[in-house]
Nucleic acid binder design. Structure first.
Lengths: 201, 201
DNA sequence: TCAAATGTAGCACGACTGTGCTATAAAAGG
DNA sequence: CCTTTTATAGCACAGTCGTGCTACATTTGA
């Protein structure tokens, strides 16, 4: 007795089942069987929506990227670059459960993308998006004497590092700690580049 | 016709076979069979050195941690904290093949540690080690008005973020780019904390 | 009303996995 | 020289895996 459900909703439900399995048991346990069971469907039914496992996985990762992109795009585009930067960065950090979930799933797939060409394309897309975003934020913020591209790379690395740490040690790298570090960094970006005194003799 | 080899060397060889399989095919393909084949041994022989797969994996990760720890410890302990910081950080970044390998293996295991308690203990050990190292470096560097713990967290996140990026995009985040970003960051740490001007009205 | 399309379920096959087990050859030690 | 230990190899079992396939119920559309 099949229910009548928009297939797009079913696909979302299945992708969310992938997320739950990945977070609870790890990506290596996200088999077709386990995901189908998690979603309360049969294997055959799952394969009606996704012709192969890699299609399912690709879609589950795609949903992470799209979700983040949409949330950032929905942010009020304030004229003040400092407020906008603060808002965008607060949106990118894993500060609540929803974003913690996305972050953990993203990390799991990022690792697998090291050896999976199909996932790698998506991972690179996310990387490029975030790097471009950092470029935009930095451009409106940096003080004199700073290299925009290097500052974008630095902010980007800081963000991804904080995300990894938040996943690894949520007890140490708490939301408040993440916010404080990012606030420090933003404040610093606005300062002029200090020319280096030579190493004291 | 068994060769006469120090069993500790065999264990190292097997761990290095794990590394190669992990880098080439991914952690999910580091099965007992594949690792044994990679090392040129039989499954039975591998299991003579490692009673279980998790013991093999644990040892392979342990070797990463110990290797990094030993290389940092072997660094000439210069009196100047700035030179020492530069040296230590250059040692921690994945700038050559050996460290690129360690870094990729570390990332793969870090991801799996999210759902594997045994690996998690090792991962946390690495995390704590690096955080403590950052604390030490920052203490000797920071300018007035800075919070040492927050700066340690920031440097730590920056390092891990750069490591992730170097693994993901070695073409973009080249060794030179990594060095430049870290140099910028170190120079900045020495500057005094700029008190924030309030957001302009 | 009846045929086509759609959603759901389940089975079967071949492949791969970790581990327990036995067999055998070489080395070590008396 | 002979026994014990060590190293290596290989097989067998039970389990999981992805996928192709069939069967059936429900909905849709003419």
């Amino acid at each position: 007795m099949p229910k009548v459900v928009d297939p797009r909703i079913r696909r979302r439900e299945l992708a969310e089942a992938v997320w739950r399995v990945v977070r609870r048991d790890g990506l290596e346990h996200a088999s077709v069987r386990n995901v189908a069971r998690e979603a309360g469907l049969s294997m055959g039914s799952l394969r009606h929506y996704f012709a192969s496992q890699s299609e399912l996985m690709t879609f589950a990762l795609r949903m992470v990227i799209d979700g983040i992109e949409q949330r950032v795009a929905a942010l009020p585009s304030d004229g003040d670059p400092r407020q906008r930067a603060a808002r965008v960065l607060a949106e990118l950090l894993p500060l609540d459960d929803q974003r913690r979930a996305e972050n953990e799933v993203w990390l799991a797939f990022t690792a697998r993308a090291m050896t999976d060409p199909e996932l790698r394309a998506l991972r690179d897309e996310g990387y490029d998006m975030l790097r471009a975003g950092c470029r935009g934020l930095v451009a409106g913020l940096i003080g004199p004497g700073r290299d925009p591209e290097r500052e974008a790379a630095r902010l980007h690395a800081l963000l991804d590092g904080l995300a990894v740490h938040a996943a690894m040690r949520p007890d140490v790298d708490t939301p408040d700690a993440l916010r404080a570090v990012v606030a420090d960094h933003l404040a610093e970006l606005r300062a002029a580049r200090t020319t280096d005194a030579p190493t004291p003799p």
